[in-house]
Design a protein around this nucleic acid. Structure first.
Lengths: 195, 195, 195, 195
DNA sequence: AGCTAAGCGAGACGGTACGTCAGGTCTTCTT
DNA sequence: AAGAAGACCTGACGTACCGTCTCGCTTAGCT
């Protein structure tokens, strides 16, 4: 085979990779998405721009790589025995993620870019941290046979209201995750008998 | 008295204003949001850049002004007697707006910008064509006393799932507006007895 | 028929004319030639730009009109009995004019413009405050028959060294007007016997 | 030591530098000083504006660099045995330079700018092609002990009349370089016995 | 007193250049 | 071969001034 490349020459600097991802995080957090410029990343990371272009095709890829791990972690909430509690905890984590976390800020930025950049859209669909985490939680809280709608639609029913609420700039304080959880259950899994 | 200004000097050219708004529409439609550059607008509109800067503070303002009228029109669906039909028709219009209309493309672009530009966010909240149209339809389809949640939250329940579905890049064909309508009714207004 | 125009309609506002000339003077003096912008003149004079364009074809014309009267005054030095004293006094006035007077600053600016704008050049030749004043002084200090060179060249011999000295940015303090006067006389009118 | 920078990174493009200087020359010659715009230079040179800003702080710097070499060459006239011939040849070269050469046009433009831009003035004093060349010729044609005035003043006496003549827009044809040379000698170095 | 004509201040308009900034690409030396 | 440095071209940004063009208002002489 010969191994494409990767055997010959100086190996990729893990140091540089980490520095780039950290720099992106820092910039999003400290100075907002507007400050996330390739030049700025390179300078803060102490890395040459060429190195960035070598390993990431677009700014979105960096942003994604920089936030996806954190996103998964933040959306991976511990299970609760009661379905309502489980879903409520998840929705609370989702709201916190979207409104207060650096990774969430990056994610919202990516959703924004996706609206006018098809490539970013596909990149984002490939990862889909919200869809995936929601599916996990639903599967855990609701027996498969109790679900009256297919899983993808179910995730939309669960997260959609909160997603809309936050992305349209409404006050997160006026959201009631427990109410949303109960409403979701009564509709998508009425046999569970949630009030 | 006196009236600030507007009386003295050459009056604003309505022609130029229209040309700019049309140019923005055209650009979003024909070449995507990426092509919406102030220089490009000015050239296509046959207007000087200075004139644009004189009347709109940001690109978002132009985009908003260019799309908001169309948005309202497209989301102002005729009433139906049956609540389910009414909400279904509205959700269908909403999906069409978000996925297929020029104004919808502009609106999604604005939502995207709002995620990393606070000013755009406030601009957008001020108009809120989705929230407002949804409130109108809900008020029309559901008697106020039958609503079990406050109106703002009710609008999120109605449009949230579809909003999430589309902005996260899922296939609009897999959405069932009538199902969403029924689910909304059964939760937000169970006394209407929708199955 | 009848007098072109000037009889009918509102007469030219002398007030505006004066305001413009003063504004130009002020601007040259206070903020340098760089600040002499038509917009700036109009604002400081409280006059509309159109009014300026109506009466002056170019910025140079305004500058000229604003400075020429002062220039003539400053270069019209009282006569002295002794030719050397007369020329010395004139050269001192010339140096002061070129280095320290507002009108002189305007004049130097015009000479500068003239180097790359033919029209300004002709405008300036038409007035020629230095050439004219020098000719007057020479004629007064030296009997016509004593002059060994034609008057125009004589004026160049008299003012040239000082003119070069100042326009090339040398220190005016190192100029000796009396020496220059004596040197001029000994060459252009040796029969006067100036040492 | 290490020397600031210059070792690391892509080296400056000599090609671009030359192209800029040529473009400036061409523009001054072909379309006059008014056409010397940074945008125009960049376009004609096939160079980005940013590159120009990187290496030259002001338009004057470019103009100076573009003309100073030519200026020195044109003002470096071969020696003649006879002092009068030597000075005459120099003055003829000076007049030709100021009236007919591209470099001379650039130089006059710079003198003009210097009248209302102090920075340009200092830039120009630093080079002073006329003062320097005149000093060289005088030193060569006149023994130091025969000079009755300090060198700087002597240069002003030599070049001043011609400088004034041309910058004030008089006809160069009416200048008599040999007369000016003789007059200069008889005054600044009378012991040489020039008639 | 009313009409006509021109001047006037205000300010919008299409242009053009400014100086800056980010995006990508390239070239050089160093590791 | 990867990396850091940094020059390069491209092209948009927002600003300033240019000279022109409406506006509505004022100021005159002429009916």
């Amino acid at each position: 085979m010969g191994g494409e490349h990767g055997k010959v020459g100086r190996p990729r600097s893990e140091e540089a990779r980490i520095a780039v991802l950290h720099a992106v995080d820092d910039l999003v957090a400290a100075r907002g998405y507007g400050a996330v410029t390739l030049k700025g990343i390179a300078e803060r990371a102490g890395v040459s721009r060429q190195t960035i272009y070598r390993w990431w095709a677009t700014k979105a890829e960096i942003l994604l790589e920089a936030s996806v791990t954190d996103a998964r972690q933040e959306l991976d909430v511990p299970a609760h025995d009661d379905p309502v509690d489980d879903l409520t905890a998840y929705l609370e984590a989702l709201v916190t993620f979207l409104t207060s976390s650096d990774a969430g800020a990056a994610y919202r930025a990516l959703v924004g870019e996706a609206q006018h950049d098809k490539a970013v859209g596909e990149l984002l669909s490939g990862t889909d941290p919200i869809g995936q985490s929601a599916a996990v939680v639903i599967a855990r809280a609701v027996p498969a046979e109790a679900l009256t709608v297919p899983m993808p639609q179910a995730t939309a029913l669960l997260v959609g209201p909160a997603f809309f609420w936050i992305l349209s700039g409404r006050q997160p304080g006026d959201l009631r995750p427990d109410t949303l959880a109960r409403e979701f259950l009564s509709r998508a899994a009425p046999s569970l008998g949630a009030a």
